[in-house]
Amino acid sequence: MIRAISSIAFFVVLLLSWEAASRSGLYSPVLLPSPLNVLEYLWQSALDGTLWSATLVTMQRLLAGYGIGLLFGIPLGLLTARSRIMQDTLGLLALGIQTLPSVCWVPLALLWFGQTEAAMLFVVVMGTLWSVLIATSDGVRAMPPIYLRAARTMGSTGLHTWFNVILPASLPYLVGGMKQGWAFAWRSLMAAEIFVTILTGFGLGQLLQYGRELLAMDQVVAVMTIIIVIGLLADRILFSPWERFFHRRWGTGSVK
């Protein structure tokens, strides 16, 4: 309860100072819109449907790219951890590519795929895949080898060991990697949407960029707010339950 009150108080103070700053007349309203203007834009765009359709388009792109990233990242990560050759080849490549900010994929994607959905998908997959791969591989390699020995004495072999020992043992790392992958997917998609203007779908990134072109700062700030809210919701809905489970079962990590 006290935690909820302190959170609410903090955000109220933040909004009030923002409102005060915009009313002070020190900054041009073009550069610093009042929170009320932002709220008004949100309300209007929610009513005319712009906001919903942009969010929907963005979420579809995000989930498709993120899904593909997980689909390849997790199995490749498992393989990389258990095979020395994979570790010295694919593992090294992943480690290198992971250091590349995902926005760096945009020029390449534009040249390869043009102004298409494929370009956008490619950037998101590249943003997700490598960090998920590395987190999975790290998780498996951090597993105490005694688990495997104990499992073997109880008659666990092959696929049973993969699904009942290796995978659950590395689950906290795996979910950590999925969380990081999600953040990276968001970042890459926003970069892609800002640079790739296509007619097949108008996403939040494009709405943001459009706001800049129109000098509509209320729109820019409103879209940023939406992106933050979606990020927070995803964290609470997708990842927090896992983290609570790990805290309860493993006794590690922190509770939210």
Binding site: P144, I146, Y147, A150, T153, M154, V165, P168, L171, R249
Partner: peptide
């Protein structure tokens, strides 16, 4: 190879935390 006719108890408990 290992068999359930010969079970092992290790120095580290080796219990599965999940």
């Amino acid at each position: 190879g290992p068999g359930r006719d010969r079970m092992v108890m290790f120095q580290e408990h080796a219990l599965f935390p999940w």
